[in-house]
Computed example of a mutant assay.
Amino acid sequence: MELAQVRLLVSDFAACYRFYGEVLGLKPQSGFADGPYERFSPSAGSAGIALQDRARTAELREELGVELGVEPVGHRSFVVLRVDELDRYCAEITGRGAVLVHGPAPMTERMRAAHLKDPEGNLVELQEWLLLGG
């Protein structure tokens, strides 16, 4: 078994496309900025993050018993990305418009992290793993 992707259902596809592609610097698979679907990869061979226009999933949501007409707001997903050199990466993405809500700061003795939100309010954690005993 292999994780193919984590898919986020979004209402503002264009804003999320820009955030994951231009702000976070993930590579889009097809370049279709107008949607309704796009997969982003942090690096070759890793699982990706996919955006799916929420309106295009109405039929499936109805079949699954999800209440239509009530759109969830943020904090339903938590995307975690591992990065090298957290301070440098945070400086890069804030220069491209990201707004950090926490960090970079130590989380544990083995990890530092920073947090921000995507345009839909989903939390994004950026992790830097630390080597111990050097």
Rank of each mutant, 00 (worst) to 15 (best):
F40G: 07
G95M: 07
L51N: 02
V101P: 02
Y89A: 07
E59G: 07
A91P: 01
T108W: 10
A105D: 13
R82W: 09
R18Y: 02
Q29N: 12
R39W: 01
R56V: 10
C90F: 04
E125C: 07
G45H: 03
Q29F: 12
P119L: 08
S41W: 08
R54V: 01
A58L: 11
F19G: 03
P119A: 04
K27A: 15
L100A: 03
R56P: 04
E85H: 13
E85G: 14
H75P: 09
V66F: 09
G121E: 00
V70N: 07
Y20G: 07
R7T: 15
A4N: 14
V124K: 01
A105I: 10
R7E: 14
V70D: 09
H115I: 11
V23E: 06
G35W: 01
M107G: 05
I49E: 00
F40H: 04
L123C: 06
V23Q: 04
V70S: 11
I93K: 10
T57G: 10
L131P: 10
F78W: 12
I93Q: 04
L126F: 03
R96Q: 13
G31V: 01
S77W: 09
L86W: 00
A50I: 06
D34A: 12
G103C: 01
D87A: 05
L100T: 04
L8A: 08
R88P: 04
L126M: 09
Q52W: 13
L9W: 14
P119D: 03
F32T: 03
